[in-house]
Design a protein around this nucleic acid. Structure first.
Length: 263
DNA sequence: ATGGTTGAGGTTCAA
């Protein structure tokens, strides 16, 4: 039975609820990893999502950030922050183990890497530190040799093929050499970018600015990723970006990214 | 063109 796992920065779960519910009904991912829910856990629209057959874990805060995991399978071992997060109260990481039929399991996480705002702002070094903490945690997970899918808005385009104008954008936030290096450090220790593994030569993006007609001009960045452990990469069938969601009215500025694993 | 748009929530900040 194929297993479909998606990541999507919804840019407010409440503003996007009708779009999300329609997408869940039509696309029916087995597991959906959501970011920028922008709501505290007590105000999360649980019932509408649970009514579609999903188990739900949330980790949110007021106004900003917030992550969630939706799963057709039971979720266990929830973790709501990266290790060494003392002094960081931003809701950006949620991890759990989904128990699949037949005694199998997949560890998943929904991560919302800080945007960084501007290379000169104090938010940029916070972004770099967050990426390093993420790298260290994924290194620790790797020794478990599990099927693991870390999905999210990484706010980093790793390579030149992942932005619309790599020459002009070099050094810009989300395509600065220091953050590309930090994301690649995650990849180099043995995690695989599902989309790039499935589509080595494609030029598609997952985020387009709301402003200046960026989507119509296809001036985007591929910053939303599904990172696979070697055991998950072994099972990868395909991956794609669902750009149709970005074209709808009341769209998020991000499109969902999906992968299919076999077995 | 330091503009442009969206969301939350409050008279601006973050993306």
């Amino acid at each position: 039975m194929p297993l479909v796992i998606a990541t999507w920065n919804v840019n407010s779960i409440r503003a996007r609820l009708e779009l999300l519910l329609g997408w869940l009904r039509e696309t029916a991912p087995d597991i959906a990893l959501l970011q920028e829910t922008k709501v505290t856990d007590d105000n999360f629209p649980r019932m509408e999502i649970e009514d579609l057959g999903y188990n739900l874990l949330t980790h949110g805060q007021k106004t900003y950030n917030g992550v969630a995991i939706l799963s057709r399978f039971p979720l266990e071992e929830a973790r709501r922050a990266l290790p060494d997060s003392e002094g960081d109260d931003q809701a950006r990481y949620l991890e759990a183990v989904a128990s699949l039929p037949g005694g199998r399991a997949v560890r998943v996480a929904s991560v919302y890497v800080p945007n960084g705002q501007d290379v000169a702002s104090e938010k940029f070094p916070y972004k770099l530190r967050f990426l390093e903490r993420l790298r260290a945690h994924l290194q620790a997970l790797r020794v478990l040799e599990e099927t693991t899918v870390i999905g999210g808005d990484y706010n980093v385009a790793p390579y030149a093929d992942d932005v619309y104008d790599p020459v002009h954008l070099d050094g810009a936030v989300c395509y600065h050499p220091l953050e590309r290096e930090r994301l690649r450090a995650v990849l180099h220790q043995g995690y695989y970018d599902a989309y790039r593994l499935s589509q080595p030569d494609a030029h598609e993006y997952s985020w387009w600015d709301y402003r200046a007609g960026a989507f119509q001009r296809d001036q985007g960045f591929r910053i939303d990723h599904l990172l696979l452990s070697p055991q998950a990469a072994d099972r990868l069938v395909s991956a794609h970006i669902d750009k149709t969601l970005r074209a709808l009215d009341k769209a998020s500025d991000h499109a969902p990214v999906l992968c299919t694993l076999d077995g």
